[in-house]
Simulated scan of single mutants.
Amino acid sequence: MDRVLCRLEGGVADVRLNRPDKLNALDDAMFAELIGVGERLRHEAGLRAIVLSGEGRAFSAGLDFAAFQAQADARPWRPAAVEDAGDPPDEFGVPGLVLGRGQKAVWVWQVHEVPVIAAVHGFALGGGLQLALGADIRLVAPDARMGVLEMDWGLTPDMCGTQILPRLVGVDVAKELTLTARKVTGEEAVRIGLATRVCADPREEALAIAAQIAGRNPAAVRAAKSMLNRAWDEEAMKAGFRAERAFMERNVGSPLQREAVRARLDGAARR
C-alpha cells in the first residue's frame, strides 16, 4: 500500500498520508515517500498549490511506535541509508545545507515555489506536528490535538521544529510547548499562532483555498511566497538544522534517552 497518495487536478496536488490504521504514524517508508512525492511535485508543470492531509482519523500521530520500542531495546531503529552520507552539500538549492531524513520530509514542502496548505484533523503530534509546520498555511479542526511530544521520549524536535516553531508562536511559547510536551486543541493552536484558522472541515476548506490560489497569476503567487520567505535568516536556519541533526545523532540510544523511552513504554503498558 502506498504510504502517500497524490492526485493532481486543476493545478492542485492533493497529497494524503495513507496509514489510517496506524493514525498515519511516520515510519521509514512514509519518510521516503513524503520526500519522493515532494521532490517530484517540485518539477510538476502547471502545479499551482498543494494540500497536505491525512487519511482516516488523524493527520499524523508522529513517529511509529515500533521505532520507540527499538530505541528502548538499543536496536537500530532506521536503516543505514537514512544517514544521508551521500547527500550533496546543497539541499533544495540552499548551499551548505545537508538535512536528515525527517528534516527533508518537512522542508521539501517549505521550499516549494507554490503555496502548501496543511489540513489538520485528529492528532498532529511530534513528527506529525513538525510535518504540518512545513506548510505555509495550517487549517485545523477545532478539536484537533497538537503537541511537541519529543520530550516525553527523551528526545528533542529534529524535523525542523526548533527553527520553525519559535517563528510562529514566539520563543517563550515554543519553549513551554517543547519542554512540557503539552497538547493543545485546534482552537488554542490558532490563538497562540501555531495554526492559521479553525475549520469544521479542514481538508475541504484547504482544497477550496488551493483552488482559489490556482486561479491567481502563478508568477505573482510564487514571487509573493518567495519574498515572504526571505524573512528567514538563512545562516541561522542552517546552523539550527545542523544542531538538530547533531544532537539527535548523539542522543538517540544514550542511557538517558533509553531510560525515558522505557519509562514511557511502561506507562503506556499500564494504561
Rank of each mutant, 00 (worst) to 15 (best):
M1K: 01
G10S: 02
G11E: 07
L17V: 02
L17N: 01
L17W: 03
N18M: 05
R19K: 12
R19Q: 15
P20N: 00
K22V: 06
A29S: 13
A29E: 14
F31C: 11
L34I: 08
I35N: 08
H43D: 09
E44G: 01
E44R: 13
L47S: 02
R48K: 10
I50D: 03
V51Y: 04
V51T: 09
R57W: 13
R57K: 10
R57L: 12
A61C: 14
A67C: 10
P76G: 13
P76Q: 07
D87A: 14
P89F: 00
P89S: 03
D90G: 05
D90H: 11
V98G: 01
R101Q: 01
Q103R: 03
K104S: 09
V114F: 03
I117F: 10
V120C: 11
G122F: 12
G127A: 09
G128F: 05
Q130K: 02
L131I: 01
G134A: 09
A135D: 07
D136A: 07
R138L: 15
R138V: 15
D143N: 13
D143W: 10
R145K: 04
M146C: 03
M151G: 15
D152G: 00
G154Y: 12
G154R: 01
G161K: 04
L165Q: 03
V171N: 00
K175D: 08
E176V: 12
T180Q: 03
T180H: 04
A181G: 13
R182A: 14
E187A: 15
E188T: 15
G193E: 04
V198S: 02
R203T: 13
L207A: 02
I209T: 13
A210D: 13
A210L: 10
Q212R: 07
I213C: 06
V221P: 10
A223R: 11
A223T: 08
A224G: 12
M227T: 06
L228F: 12
L228E: 10
L228V: 06
N229W: 11
A236N: 14
A246V: 06
F247H: 14
R250A: 07
L256F: 10
A263K: 08
R264F: 00
G267D: 11
A269K: 05
R270F: 05
